[in-house]
Design a protein around this nucleic acid. Structure first.
Lengths: 211, 211
DNA sequence: GAGCAAACGGAACCTCGTTCCGAAACGATA
DNA sequence: TATCGTTTCGGAACGAGGTTCCGTTTGCTC
């Protein structure tokens, strides 16, 4: 179940593949390959906006004007493609955590604003939240990146607020993220359901039970 | 979007098909047909318990020892089969609402207990919660039955608690049900996520914001 | 320009929901 | 009990979607 194998060739150094990290150094691949990867990311982003994250792989291939094989060589699974498309935004959200903590009047406010950021992110990508829940096999990559990046930030905010006595002290960051993520499922596609409202209530429930 | 058509024949009285209602009268169908329907319900229930609600229709057919056609004649869509299997339990949950309201010390407690009933129901059928969210097309039947039956009860409890001044007055029953349902998604299959806990927090967030 | 590994495209495969239709079973009638 | 029209059955076939495979094409190196 745990992803152990990602590359399996034998020749190359194996550390020069991914292109993000810092700038866009390490051009270890062929030019067309890198170009196609970009094209794919753009196409996927475009299709996701119009058709949602659940759009068929074939649609993305068509939009990018490449074959299916090309998609699967660059992104072994649809989940990997989704992760790649949203990586920047997830990172941005994660980075916003410490900033908010430093600039907000109190940790609780920072937590609230950060959760809002997260919710906005999920709610605006239609279908993303639904795909984040674990029981869909093959989406470990998606999970892994979201959680690895966001849970520590959430934990930090939670801890700060707890230390300030503003919320219950026994809250688990992972659980809260899962909960908030779940509340965002189907937020689009149902005009009668307002995920933001429900999240607000959930966060309100974090207050220390007094008396 | 709104399900308006359920039966659409033209000849028959149209009211003698479903077999629940009161006892098990109205034997308007052939004997083997009725027997198969029972067999199917049992088989489906069994398969749902072991493989979850998302089990392939073919598995259920195999378990029941019938062909695919048979399933689809009795239950036009997989969602209809799911509804049929859980109808009793949903009804029982709905019926428990007024009882709890009458026997609990306060409306808020009744609401809490009723939500617990609902959560227990969802959490013990693995995968059910996930299938309840609207964006899965073709599942209107499932939605319709759950919501038609449960939302009014929830509304009643909410209203009672609001009248007693125990919770915020502006809460929408549908939204709350959706929220609670969403929180239950993936509750099994992830040992680190405790849906009951999250629901508890959400319900705690219903308290009237004082001071 | 030749050679070769890397990358490409898309047919093919698998799973799953659903539809279709010839065969079998039922039960009213003779 | 034998017959016949109707209902129900079983499962092959279809379409959609994710993923794999492999023959062909292309970029890079010498």
């Amino acid at each position: 179940m745990v992803p152990l194998l990602q590359e399996a060739s034998g020749k190359s150094g194996a550390v020069n593949d991914s292109d993000e990290g810092a700038g866009q150094a390490v051009p270890s691949k062929r030019k067309d390959a890198r170009r196609n990867k970009e094209t794919l990311l753009d196409a996927a982003a475009a299709v996701f906006v119009t058709s949602g994250v659940e759009a068929p792989v074939r649609d993305i291939a068509a939009e990018a004007g490449v074959g299916l094989g090309t998609i699967y060589r660059h992104f072994p699974t649809r989940a990997d493609l989704i992760v790649a498309v949203y990586r920047h935004q997830v990172d941005a959200c994660a980075d916003a955590g410490p900033t908010l903590l430093a600039t907000s009047p109190c940790p609780r406010a920072a937590l609230g604003q950060w959760i809002n950021l997260f919710v906005d992110f999920l709610v605006t990508k239609h279908g993303l939240a639904a795909v984040l829940q674990a029981d869909n096999a093959g989406f470990e990559a998606l999970h892994a990146h979201f959680l690895d990046r966001l849970v520590p930030v959430c934990a930090e905010l939670l801890e700060a607020a707890a230390r300030a006595g503003e919320i219950r002290p026994d809250l688990d960051a992972y659980e809260l993220m899962r909960g908030v993520g779940n509340l965002c499922i189907g937020a689009d596609s149902d005009p009668h359901y307002d995920a933001r409202h429900m999240v607000e209530l959930l966060i309100a429930g974090l207050r220390r039970p007094h008396h």
